[in-house]
Simulated assay, not measured.
Amino acid sequence: MQFRRWRALLPALLVACNGAPAQQTNSNVAVQQQAQFTPGEALLINIVREVSPAVVGIRTPTGSGSGVIISPDGLIITNAHVVGRAGNVRVSLANGNDVDARVLGIAQTVDIAVLDIPGENLPHAVLGDSDALQVGQSAIAIGNPIGFERTVTTGVLSAMNRSLGFGYEELIQTDAAINPGNSGGPLLNSSGQVIGINTAAVREVPGQGPLAGLGFAIPINLARDVANQIATRGSVRRALLGIQHREIDPIIAEQFGLPVTRGAIVLYVAPNSPADRAGLRQGDIITHIDDEELDDASDLRRILRQRDPGDMITVRGVRPQGQFSVRVQLGEAPG
């Protein structure tokens, strides 16, 4: 009976799955609490005033988008699809100046590009921790949709670890409006920290009509790791396990009679991937990598970010037949 309930969990999860502030200038004074502003409004106004100077417009011969300055000496994160193959990239700053940018590198498969502009003590955003995010918390997007500079939209984090295919994995889903031109701009939390890089929105599904409130962002921990590698060595190497997974929590464990209450359940194993060659199977629940216990699925992502292609890891967990332990040699993610 318990085995049947465990197997019943997979289709439900497969459907669900597939589907500190920037530096202030002297003019950025705090919004005083006044009768016309609720505490929430005052907080949002302060965040926008503090972070907006770090949000830039990006123009190439073939299009435009957004980006965010992440260091005082001019390092910028944006989307790879915003930069494309352009050799000529112009950046519009909040002070009205336009400057030429140097493309340090592009990681196509995670849709991240890193630019560099000249300058010192530039306004820059503070990066948060996307592994600590919770569904339901506030989300703020700033960008340049169809040329309307530094437009602000708000919403919540609707889901985590979404996949759109074509390399778009581990995405944050939000109902904050993401429109053409927002790509590459920051998604913020209520502390004004960057938690994601806005990258895509789903507006219509053939045969189902128009959709709204389906925006997606690349988690900042992934974007930061890619940006650091590009900035320091000009290329990106990421460890690959070769699975799609979903977090197990006590509620899911009780509903489906699972033998553990924490971990990551394997939804899909890519053929001929390191996971496949090691014997991992759909439905396995991973509870440990080496000696580290997984409290949730973000732990698995964090551990893999800390490993290099070629590293050997021990994956332990449970499956309907009992406990398992396999050795996996990590591969290298493309691009």
Rank of each mutant, 00 (worst) to 15 (best):
residue 6 W to M: 06
residue 23 Q to G: 14
residue 26 N to F: 09
residue 35 A to E: 15
residue 41 E to W: 01
residue 54 A to D: 08
residue 54 A to T: 07
residue 68 V to D: 01
residue 71 S to E: 02
residue 86 A to L: 14
residue 87 G to M: 07
residue 90 R to W: 13
residue 94 A to I: 08
residue 104 L to Q: 12
residue 116 D to H: 15
residue 118 P to S: 15
residue 118 P to H: 10
residue 121 N to K: 05
residue 128 G to A: 06
residue 128 G to H: 09
residue 128 G to S: 04
residue 141 A to Q: 04
residue 151 T to E: 02
residue 156 V to L: 15
residue 159 A to M: 04
residue 172 I to N: 05
residue 175 D to W: 01
residue 175 D to M: 06
residue 177 A to P: 03
residue 179 N to S: 04
residue 183 S to V: 00
residue 183 S to N: 00
residue 189 N to K: 01
residue 195 I to R: 06
residue 197 I to E: 04
residue 201 A to C: 04
residue 205 V to T: 15
residue 210 P to N: 11
residue 211 L to I: 09
residue 212 A to Y: 13
residue 217 A to H: 01
residue 218 I to K: 02
residue 218 I to L: 03
residue 226 V to R: 01
residue 226 V to S: 03
residue 239 A to Y: 06
residue 242 G to T: 01
residue 245 H to I: 10
residue 248 I to Y: 03
residue 251 I to W: 07
residue 256 F to S: 08
residue 260 V to K: 02
residue 264 A to L: 07
residue 265 I to E: 09
residue 266 V to R: 10
residue 268 Y to S: 06
residue 279 G to L: 14
residue 279 G to A: 14
residue 284 D to C: 07
residue 290 D to A: 06
residue 297 A to L: 09
residue 298 S to M: 08
residue 298 S to D: 13
residue 300 L to C: 08
residue 301 R to F: 11
residue 302 R to M: 11
residue 304 L to E: 06
residue 311 D to C: 01
residue 315 V to E: 11
residue 316 R to H: 02
residue 321 Q to P: 07
residue 333 A to I: 01
